[in-house]
């Protein structure tokens, strides 16, 4: 068997195992984000949003909010999936099954990222389905919509992987989402347009990478964005490459994995 086909088998094994895991614990992986986002739609979109009226280009607040919440779900779940799954494998030492195999590092990384993207996109699709109960959405740019979702999911899968590699206890994989990811997401234009902010807050907001992901996706769905879409994709590609290279380097050096 050639190396390429062996690697393909190994890659599909990891992805299949990750998907089986997501489905095995679906009450933890799929249902909670759906419930949380439904509450967001009801409280922010329906109850409060109905008093706000049109927010930009004639879109209702519910329509404006929906892409942000979909992207937020994708980001959170991609990150959460890989950090808990890979750290769990480290904690139980099951990761050694992969480390002693002939699989190259890029296969391990790609497999876990693909699993996390699968969860991110599944939850994203669920949340989008819920959004359609509350409002109507017409995708303005399908390719941009898909590309932004995919890149956003990959970026936070890679970030979750890095977190899992460095984590020594379960608390360590909860710290980043609580103290970094959630604030950045909430301040990344999910609930509001950064154009509403005065300076210097508008400029400060532009340092937040999540702003570019949310706005690229919003542009794909609604055709409106707070940032230049080209810049948004450049930022996302930069993070994919930087975090991907960093993840591979961690695996090569065996940080937290090999003695």
């Amino acid at each position: 068997m050639s190396n390429a086909s062996a690697n393909l088998v190994a890659l599909s094994t990891i992805v299949r195992r990750e998907i089986v895991r997501i489905l095995r614990i679906w009450t933890q992986t799929l249902i909670p984000p759906a419930i949380t986002m439904t509450l967001y739609f009801v409280i922010f979109g329906k109850l409060i949003g109905s008093r706000i009226g049109s927010i930009e280009h004639g879109y209702t607040y519910m329509q404006y909010l929906a892409p942000g919440l979909v992207m937020m779900s994708i980001i959170m779940n991609s990150y959460g999936n890989i950090s808990s799954s890979f750290f769990g494998a480290k904690f139980s030492r099951a990761v050694e099954e992969m480390l002693v195999s002939p699989m190259p590092n890029w296969v391990i990384l790609t497999g876990y990222v693909a699993g996390a993207v699968a969860r991110g996109l599944s939850v994203g699709a669920l949340v989008l389905g819920i959004a359609l109960f509350f409002t109507s959405l017409h995708v303005a740019h399908p390719l941009i919509t898909f590309a932004s979702v995919l890149l956003g999911s990959v970026i936070f899968s890679l970030a979750g992987f890095v977190n899992a590699v460095y984590a020594k206890k379960f608390d360590d994989i909860a710290l980043v989402p609580t103290f970094i990811l959630t604030p950045l997401t909430y301040l990344g234009g999910v609930f509001y347009s950064v154009k509403m902010l005065s300076e210097p807050w508008q400029a400060i907001s532009r340092i937040n990478p999540i702003l570019y992901m949310v706005n690229a996706f919003r542009y794909g769905v609604l055709g409106i964005s707070d940032v230049n879409v080209g810049v948004a994709f450049a930022v996302m590609l930069f993070f994919v490459l930087a975090l991907g290279a960093f993840g591979l380097q961690l695996l090569k050096r065996g940080v937290g994995l090999r003695s």
Binding site: T13, R17, G88, R93, P102
Partner: peptide, 21 residues
């Protein structure tokens, strides 16, 4: 012991083979 204890023995073995291509 270094396998995922929530997986089934059959899956553990099949996955292991998968890692070897």
């Amino acid at each position: 012991i270094n396998f995922n204890q929530f997986e089934k023995p059959f899956d553990i073995c099949v996955n292991e083979a998968g890692f070897y291509g």
